[in-house]
Design a protein around this nucleic acid. Structure first.
Lengths: 202, 202
DNA sequence: GTCTATAACGTGATAGAC
DNA sequence: GTCTATCACGTTATAGAC
């Protein structure tokens, strides 16, 4: 009918929604739930802040959707892991790499964020974060358990306790690294792999 | 001269300032820098929000002072540790107890908070947090190093790497515990002590 | 010296234009 | 269906009362 309708620039269907999610995830992991506003998201998209409410009813819904997407992304990530002779060691290292990627982008782990802001985060977002934590924990527990049974790994604690240690230290290490000390993640990574009885991949 | 001056209730000199610091520390560790306001502090003290600005020039100064006090408290805490036959193991356990105390009070570790909100925290507060991190790391490194030399502890990684692991996992564990899972800290504690080659004091 | 009243601004959210 | 104009509220900060 017409290529440009009214006074606003139309975008491909679903495109704006996807962009909002990306920008929100970025801000959320960089500055926390209360550290960004609809106006900032709207500025990046060159629209008014009210327009964001068309795609997401409120900030709570937006952040819930961001956390839900983290879960989808993690499920996808799990599915693309390669099998191999050092499966468990490789997978743990890849998990640590995945967490470390946050540092380059100036982000923290979403779970760390949720833990810190728990008391002021919308309940629905907390539920998503808890589900993500469970999924990470179960995946790690299974991976560590298998690795020890294989003889790839060697540690004395229970696999689930060790899984919690890996999760907690990874998210804590990212936070320490942000405090003007980017090398801190690597130190934790070394100590963690040594504690798991895994020699570095090279 | 007079027992009640004007229309406000006078408090002992320095008392209001101290109370503001206490309340701010509580809110800060419970909800983050952007998660509380001067009005909320003022409400608890039954004064107007503007009055807080008499004691602290702005929110940045207030939070800087809170972080500075964490450093003082840690220095005091270090000074009151008892010597003994299991000095290093005991000290590490006491450190973990100190961190765990945050959970009971609904707080996270100040360093975790600073790491998460780093990008939107006043620069002066970040400097204080970095100094606190250095002090914790140095104390832990020394304690772990001594413990391994004593034969109390047994681990293969470098003491400083291990110190970072202890710090990171403690603050991460507190955050995980907040996500409706209070037992998570204990799991990390067990895995950590096992990785340090220390048997639990029970 | 200590606090109250009020300003100036930024926030999430809504009603309605097109 | 998508976005703009605008609102009511909460925020930090300042000026000045006593």
């Amino acid at each position: 009918m017409s290529e440009v309708v009214g006074q606003f620039k139309p975008r491909p269907r679903g495109e704006t929604r996807r962009r909002i999610l990306n920008i929100a995830a970025d801000w959320l992991q960089q500055r926390g739930y209360h550290g960004f506003s609809f106006a900032q998201i709207a500025d990046e998209l060159e629209i008014r802040s009210g327009a964001v409410h068309y795609h997401f009813r409120g900030k709570a819904d937006l952040v819930e959707a961001v956390f839900a997407r983290y879960r989808e992304e993690f499920a996808w990530w799990c599915g693309q892991l390669p099998e191999g002779p050092r499966r468990s060691v490789d997978w743990v290292e890849r998990f640590l790499d995945l967490e470390a990627k946050n540092i380059e982008r100036g982000r923290v782990c979403p779970l760390g964020l949720a833990g810190v802001e728990f008391a002021s985060l919308p309940a629905a977002a907390c539920r998503e974060a808890e589900a993500l934590r469970d999924e990470l924990r179960d995946w790690l527990t299974d991976t560590l358990h298998t690795g020890r049974a294989n003889g790839e790994l060697s540690f004395s604690a229970a696999p689930q306790d060790m899984a919690q240690l890996v999760m907690a230290s990874a998210q804590g290490a990212i936070q320490l690294a942000r405090l003007q000390s980017p090398g801190d993640f690597l130190k934790v990574r070394r100590a963690l792999l040594a504690s798991l009885g895994a020699t570095a991949a090279h």
